[in-house]
């Protein structure tokens, strides 16, 4: 297995360069002019040219790409051309409390785990009670939940629960570990509700697929109880699709939730790429692309390794 992991890790290098090359070309062709952007509203031609020289935008394209590669290799992404802030600080923060990555995670990770727990439990109950009134009504509710835009939940949740009833803070943030939960409760609830519909339907389908398998019938005929069948057999066998879904979502948890963070004023990573794109902030876009690519590949690898752990039939070669 270790050989496999090492080989996959080595594969990551060409993929990373491929992805960065495409991003680089795309932004050079379709992006705005960062020099004009930086020069501001009273800029002159000379001033824009000066900025090109200062930041190396005047160099031939392949030289600019080489600079980028150098950044990837040395892990030094320099500063944002828009805010002039250090990019590593913009992503990882000056301290754990002020870290945008950890801020995003403190919203998304608990919310995600909570969603997992709730949706798998509900899906298991529905699998047992399939076809019943309960099953049907929950399905209808799930579909209804899915048919609203995520913005609706945020706007209504904030106005009703935050403003009118005053149960939660309307928006805001306190970086201290002991205080931040006050601002996280409402966005977490909304995050969970947002993922409820699709996840319940997904897990229910998976469990239903398993429940009609021969091994379940065998187990039943052996006289095993419903609980044992569900938890020991069905859940274990449904692990592969569950792992796929869970691990694939991990990079997105780190990247934060754009809308939720923006509306609740949570200073995570959510808005970073969005803002960088709006300002033609190449250095930030580059750093984030590399980060996303690496995370995506790492979690893909973790998925494959986990497959072999939960399913003995899968061997990594």
């Amino acid at each position: 297995m270790w050989k496999y992991v090492v080989r996959r890790t080595l594969y990551m290098i060409p993929i990373l360069f491929g992805v960065t090359l495409i991003t680089f070309l795309l932004f050079n062709v379709a992006g705005g002019d960062p020099a004009a952007q930086m020069a501001g509203k009273n800029a002159t031609a000379e001033r824009i040219e000066e900025i090109r020289v200062l930041y190396g935008f005047n160099k031939p394209i392949h030289m600019q790409y080489l600079d980028f590669v150098r950044q990837i290799v040395t892990f030094d992404y320099g500063r944002s051309i828009s805010s002039k802030q250090k990019i590593s600080t913009m992503i990882f923060g000056e301290s754990p409390e002020l870290s945008p990555v950890l801020t995003s995670l403190s919203l998304t990770l608990p919310a995600f785990l909570l969603t997992l727990l709730i949706t798998i439990s509900i899906a298991l109950v529905l699998t047992v009670k399939r076809g019943s009134k309960l099953d049907k009504s929950v399905m209808v509710i799930c579909l209804a939940l899915l048919s609203f835009s995520s913005l609706v939940y945020i706007l209504v949740g904030q106005k009703w629960l935050g403003y009118e009833l005053g149960i939660f803070e309307i928006s805001g943030w306190d970086p201290s570990w002991t205080e931040r939960w006050r601002y996280l409760t409402l966005p977490t609830i909304i995050f969970v509700i947002l993922s409820l519909g699709s996840n319940i339907l997904f897990y229910r389908t998976i469990f239903l697929e398993e429940i009609f398998q021969d091994y379940v019938r065998t187990a039943k005929s052996k006289g095993l109880g419903q609980k044992v069948i569900l938890f020991k057999h069905v859940l274990r066998n449904a692990m592969i699709p569950i792992i796929t879904l869970v691990v694939i979502q991990m990079p997105f948890l780190i990247l934060g939730a754009l809308l939720t963070e923006a509306f609740f004023g949570i200073p995570g990573l959510g808005g970073l790429i969005f803002q960088a794109l709006n300002e033609a902030d190449f250095p930030v876009i580059r750093a984030m692309t590399v980060l996303i690519t690496i995370m995506y590949m790492v979690f893909q690898l973790i998925t494959d390794v986990l497959y072999s752990v939960v399913d003995p039939k899968v061997t990594l070669k």
Binding site: L155, K159, I170, S171, F263, F264, G265
Partner: peptide, 17 residues
């Protein structure tokens, strides 16, 4: 406070924050 969205800014004002 850096509040980029309209609704939370408005609601916080109406609440007196």
């Amino acid at each position: 406070r850096e509040i980029t969205e309209d609704q939370p800014r408005w609601l916080n004002f109406m609440k007196g924050n």
